[in-house]
């Protein structure tokens, strides 16, 4: 990961504010090409702000966000999407009164319609046969698990090199959670880098290669998922639920 050419996304000393509130404090991340990197942390730790800083919904006050070797922190969101960053938003955030197919179309908004679009639709349908079945249905009427499939499919429609996922397992039934993580691994195997904010540390550290732990806006721990799984403070703070339920 030390080779710059292998880096897809890098945060260099990023400070982000909401008004007077200092949310991200001198944050550094490196995401290598082909990795699944997970971001752990409690409420208000700055996880979602990290996602918004990557997407350009909030701009950092200081520091640099580098994507594919070029600084992107001044770019408009649309340009970031065009360069290959796509989000899977917290709580899915589908367009509730549009059809499933229209939601997928919106994922490909920055791209031209053509044979590639058709290929990508087929790819999403192959990954999620249920999405194909429901393509004409109004998105707001789908179940939570189905909505998450559409949300992931919508991100894939951008042909991204990096997918930023904000709480992909939130609010899903346990059997769906496993399915979502299996899908994330499958998408990663097909070549897409994944940066994932996740409350479910147990699952996150199972599928991720590496992880960062964020606490009140600062990175307090980072390392391989395996090392973090064995870290006593992580076990106590984030994996406690696992010990109770397993």
């Amino acid at each position: 990961m030390s080779e710059a050419a292998d880096l897809l996304l890098e945060f260099k000393d990023v400070d982000t504010y909401y008004g007077d509130l200092h949310v991200l404090k001198q944050v550094n991340y490196t995401i290598g090409r082909g990795e699944i990197v997970s971001l752990l942390g409690g409420n208000a730790s700055g996880k979602s702000t990290t996602m918004k800083t990557i997407m350009g919904v909030v701009r950092p006050a200081r520091g640099s966000v580098v994507f594919d070797g070029k600084p992107i922190e001044r770019l408009a969101t649309a340009e970031r999407v065009r360069r290959g960053i796509a989000p899977v938003l917290e709580a899915r955030r589908l367009f509730p009164r549009m059809t499933v197919f229209e939601n997928l179309e919106m994922g490909a908004y920055t791209r031209k319609r053509g044979p590639e679009f058709e290929q990508d639709i087929e790819r999403v349908y192959a990954l999620f046969p249920r999405v194909k079945e429901r393509h004409a249905q109004i998105a707001g009427t789908l179940s939570g698990g189905e909505q998450q499939m559409v949300a992931i499919g919508r991100a894939l429609m951008a042909r991204p090199r990096l997918i930023c996922m904000d709480e992909p397992s939130m609010g899903l039934a346990p059997n769906f959670v496993e399915q979502v993580f299996a899908t994330i691994q499958e998408i990663n195997r097909q070549g897409t880098t994944i940066f994932m904010v996740e409350q479910n540390a147990n699952m996150a550290l199972t599928v991720a290669h590496r992880a960062y732990v964020l606490q009140t806006g600062q990175v307090v721990l980072s390392g391989t998922a395996e090392a973090l799984r064995k870290n006593p403070s992580i076990r106590e703070a984030y994996l406690g639920e696992m010990q109770v339920t397993v």
Binding site: V57, T77, L94
Partner: peptide, 8 residues
């Protein structure tokens, strides 16, 4: 916000 993040 979601529309914006689709590149709209």
């Amino acid at each position: 916000e979601a529309a914006r993040m689709m590149g709209v």
